[in-house]
Amino acid sequence: MEEAIVAENLVKRYGNVEAVRGISFRVKRGEAYALLGPNGAGKTTTVRMLTTLTSITSGEAYVNGHNVKTERLAVRRSIGLVPDISNLYEELTVEENLRFMAKLYDAPRERIAELIKDFNLPAGMKFGKLSSGFKRRVTIAAALIHEPEVLFLDEPTTALDINSAKAVRGLIRLLNKRGMTVFLTTHNMLEAETIPQRIAIIRGGKIVAEGRRNELKKLVGRRILVRLSVEPITSSLLKKLEPYKPAFEEGGIVLEVDEPDEFLRFIFSLRSELGFRIDHICTELPSIEDVFVELTEGGCPCGGCPL
């Protein structure tokens, strides 16, 4: 099978709460895929269903070709999970924790030393005494003990400071580059911008958009922004810029354009015509944050959830 993860119409109900309402997606082998969504969107629930930690109310899921509902042990053998909290044994040292995981997964003992070295871990420290950043690293290392084909990470950098988060992101990218399939949930924009090749935006238990970053960015109504700073600003210049809805911000004029190439040609021809000086000009694509805000703000499209 070419796909590492297949989800078909997954639904999870807790009593009256429908946490996930029929989501479908496919993640290719070696791909990094992110589920991006606000609090309570159903990200953790989705990960828990795919990793056999919670039952699937309805729908089908396959991980590495194994049916999640009927081949739970096979699924477990082929995945690594970094849960939303770092949950290793506090009284055991880093090395003891890894040794225990190696036994649980029948991984060779050499793996322990390898991970300690690769991740630069304090082997003799008790897990409970580590900083959040190091706890996260050890938790990721523990998930890799058996070199799983697919790695699930639930909000891997939440509660980390800037540098630790950066290190963890680098680590995930590296793993993905080496060929590991990565499935990650996040509400961190930087993470969504830098790690996954494809993103699904989830909200109220439903996927509201899915695609590569550029594809998602095209979904937002807003066009490309041009920041322009010229001297002098004359009324005849403003008149010419009228169609681009100029707005004044600190340091210049902000305009909305469809075709940056066309616009640049236009502005340079204006310069020869009106004789102003361009101090600064730059274009700006909408960010994933813009996409996220646009797709997840306001009343939920499903109409039924509290979001």
């Binding site: 930690l53 042990l73 849960p83 909290i85 949950n87 290793l88 506090e90 995981m101 649980l104």
Partner: peptide
């Protein structure tokens, strides 16, 4: 409470 239990549940053990 610390959810270390989930480690066992997600591992390939019966």
């Amino acid at each position: 409470r610390l959810r270390t239990f989930e480690r066992l549940l997600v591992a390939p053990v019966g």
